[in-house]
Simulated assay, not measured.
Amino acid sequence: MKSLKTIALAAFAFALFSCGGDKKTDSIPTASSDGAATEAPATPAAVDPATYDPKRGLGPHENIDVSKFDPAMAAAGKKIAEVKCTSCHKPTEEKLVGPGWKGVTKRQTPEWIMNFISNPDPMIDVDPELQKQLELCLVRMPNQGLNEKDAREVLEYMREIDGAK
């Protein structure tokens, strides 16, 4: 009985710490005009929630062209999601740790999705809808270190889930 309690406690501790950490990313890698990578602040020190754009979010992604569906990009996005996302999200409406993905591309703009999945912390801090979601899920989405290409591929996979063809 004692060993069963020890195993249960160890499993609980592992689950508690496995999806994230206390490290927050406060910057987004960007390319300078000469092509070298630099660190740019993700957000100003204090973002005024009154000026926050809930259609775009916070981050470098804007004007994402989703006029044509790309099946190869969606397949690559599915592979990324299987490694980095599906331990917390299902491709259905069902909540796992985080919300299900079905319908997300109908509720949010491509820019918002890419900005959120590539650097979630600044948006969680100011987006009222994300703060409500945090109250339901009780776990902040960890930054998975997605670059622009990865984020775009995951977005295309989300579009496929929502019926893009």
Rank of each mutant, 00 (worst) to 15 (best):
P99F: 11
A75H: 12
A76G: 05
R107N: 04
N143F: 00
K165V: 10
D34I: 11
S33Y: 10
L130P: 01
S32V: 00
V47A: 01
D53I: 04
P41N: 08
G145S: 08
T86R: 13
T105L: 03
Q144P: 00
D162G: 14
Y52I: 13
T25P: 00
S27H: 10
E160C: 02
K5R: 12
N115Q: 11
K165D: 05
S67C: 07
Y52V: 10
D121M: 09
R152K: 08
E129D: 15
L146K: 05
L146E: 03
E93T: 08
K55V: 08
T51M: 06
F69E: 05
G21F: 07
H89Q: 04
N63S: 14
T25A: 09
T86I: 13
F17G: 04
M73V: 06
I80S: 07
D162T: 13
D70Y: 08
K149W: 09
M123P: 01
S87P: 00
D48E: 06
T109N: 09
T51C: 01
K24W: 12
Q133H: 03
K79P: 04
T86G: 05
I7W: 14
K55M: 06
A74H: 09
N115D: 13
K2V: 15
T109F: 06
N143Q: 10
D48W: 04
M123Y: 02
I124S: 06
L58V: 15
A151C: 11
P49L: 13
C85Y: 10
K2Q: 13
N147I: 04
C19N: 11
I7S: 10
K106P: 00
Y52R: 03
V126M: 01
K84M: 02
E62D: 12
F12W: 10
N143Y: 01
I64G: 05
E62A: 14
R107L: 14
S27W: 02
A10M: 15
K68I: 04
L136V: 08
S33A: 14
D53F: 09
I7K: 04
G21I: 01
A50S: 14
A11E: 05
L130V: 03
S33N: 06
W112N: 02
A13K: 01
P91F: 13
M73T: 10
K132W: 00
P91T: 13
E93G: 11
S67W: 06
I161E: 00
D150I: 00
I80G: 03
A15Y: 11
D26E: 12
Q131M: 08
A50H: 09
A11F: 10
K132L: 00
P49S: 03
P71Q: 10
V104A: 14
A15Q: 03
N115F: 11
S32W: 10
D125I: 08
K24N: 08
D22S: 11
K106V: 02
P99I: 12
V83Q: 11
P120W: 00
Y157H: 11
E62I: 13
L155V: 09
T51F: 04
G57N: 10
N115Y: 12
K79E: 14
I124L: 07
D26L: 15
P120K: 02
E39W: 08
K95R: 15
M114C: 09
V47D: 03
K84H: 10
K2G: 12
P91E: 10
P128V: 09
F116E: 01
V154K: 06
I124C: 01
Q144D: 03
D48R: 02
